[in-house]
Simulated scan of single mutants.
Amino acid sequence: MLEIDIESDEEWDSSTDWSLLVRKAAEAAIAESAFPQLTVSMRGVELSVRLTGDEEVRALNSEWRGKDKPTNVLSFPMLEEADLEEANVAGPELLLGDIVLARGVCEREAAEKDIPVERHATHLLVHGTLHLLGYDHLEDEEAADMETREVRALARLGIDDPYQVRD
């Protein structure tokens, strides 16, 4: 069972069902990870998402990554790979971690790509969820694996490959 806790501020468009969007993005990312059992785990699995503005993300990025600027998405994993592998074993709830999205950066990047902000946010949520599941893009091989998983997760949601160059 996957539980999602969402905090949102007034900057995020209230006409979008962000809870549904976050759930679908997280489930698609989990399904394409090495841990698809998390969505049907005997234990509760929780993910926390904060939809906020650029200033809050800038402050978090500065504090945790030493980069004094806003970024599109931040992920704060709480589990080790061994915890994820044992998800089907009875025990206390597993908190995957936290994802934080910056509205302004999201909107600007979506506009540059000429896509709806909801589609770009979905991609960022898939990306952030994969980070919580232990994936990274520091090395070329890791980056290729993570990108492949992102593309497959987005395809599950009917979203085209965001890395493909458009004409």
Rank of each mutant, 00 (worst) to 15 (best):
S19K: 09
A34M: 11
R108L: 14
T52K: 04
R43Q: 11
V40P: 00
F35K: 06
L157C: 10
L154K: 05
L132W: 01
A34H: 14
L138V: 11
L51R: 11
D167C: 01
L47E: 00
M78R: 13
E86Y: 01
A31I: 00
E112G: 05
P162S: 04
I4D: 03
G104P: 03
E27A: 08
E11I: 13
T52E: 10
L125S: 08
D13K: 08
V151P: 07
P77V: 12
D98P: 00
P92T: 15
D17R: 03
A29L: 01
E141M: 04
S48Q: 08
L138P: 00
E56W: 03
L124D: 07
L2R: 04
H120F: 15
I30Y: 03
K69A: 12
T122Y: 12
S33Y: 04
M146Y: 02
E107L: 12
L157V: 09
L74G: 09
L38C: 09
E109D: 15
V165E: 08
G158Y: 02
A28P: 02
K24I: 00
E3G: 12
S15Y: 12
E81Q: 14
D17P: 03
Y135K: 08
I6Q: 05
L20W: 04
S62C: 07
R65H: 15
L74Q: 13
G128Q: 12
A25L: 09
E63T: 06
W64E: 15
A121K: 03
L20S: 15
R103S: 10
A144F: 07
P70H: 05
H123I: 00
A59L: 06
V126E: 07
L21H: 06
V22F: 12
E118R: 14
M78Q: 14
P162C: 05
K113N: 14
F35E: 02
M42R: 10
D167P: 09
R65P: 00
E139A: 07
Y135R: 10
R152F: 00
R43A: 14
M78L: 05
L2K: 01
M42I: 10
R58E: 09
L38M: 03
E107M: 06
D160A: 15
G66E: 02
E118D: 15
G158Q: 10
